[in-house]
Amino acid sequence: MLNIKNLYASVQGNQILKGVSLAVNAGEVHAIMGPNGSGKSTLSRVVTGHPQYTVDGGVLEYDIGGQMTNIIGKEPDERAREGIFLAFQYPVEIPGVPASEFLRASYNAVGRHHGLEEMDPIDFDVFVREKMKVLEMDDKYLDRALNVDFSGGEKKRNEILQMAVLNPRLALLDETDSGLDIDSMKIVAHGVNTLRSKRNAMIVITHYQRLLNFIKPDFVHILYQGKIIKSGGPDLALKVEDKGYDWLIK
């Protein structure tokens, strides 16, 4: 589904990714761990097409209509409509735009691309409230401006709600656990797990092993200085939790 080979990328002239390779197939959950500044968030932004990041070399391919397709240069919204989703580490506040209106615009933009009929506001309301229940979200959420004056936990739940609404094929979760207490993390992880299926894949970016207790990965990769220096199974995350990164780095 996603094929990254020897990928180099920079932001504002600083090269951050220095030859990342990663292959993700449908049905798989990959965890990417690594110390601060190793390039984890950069990787998520390059895959989703942030305009400030430049790809300097390598391969970035994604399955579109059964064909592995180069997505370098595609707009973020094109990638999103093809089923790539990023749950932000710091969800952006958008004053004056009600969450409900935004969610429906987003859902319909993706749906239209796949030839689906637009959902009217009433049907959509029912559809969203179903999803909100799983995430134990407050009813008033839909009337509020997107992410404005949301607590850290509300913002993270909101990200997963959007993921549930869009039902992406490839979801990247960028430090979705940061700023969450253990109860909120369980709710969020539950939300994520209900979306796991054979047809989709996830890349979970995290500092800590604890999220991986709730969202069980098939593969764990350690990103360091812009490169994946070690890959393994779930045990690798436990080992990192126990020993830190030092043993991998030297």
Partner: peptide, 26 residues
């Protein structure tokens, strides 16, 4: 803000319109 809206499938022009509407909302 534009990037955020675009990552949700909203095209750039529509995202701009949405942000402009947000600006005048209050």
């Amino acid at each position: 803000q534009l990037f955020y809206l675009q990552t949700r499938g909203v095209g750039k022009d529509d995202a701009r319109k949405m942000l402009i509407r947000g600006f005048v909302d209050d």
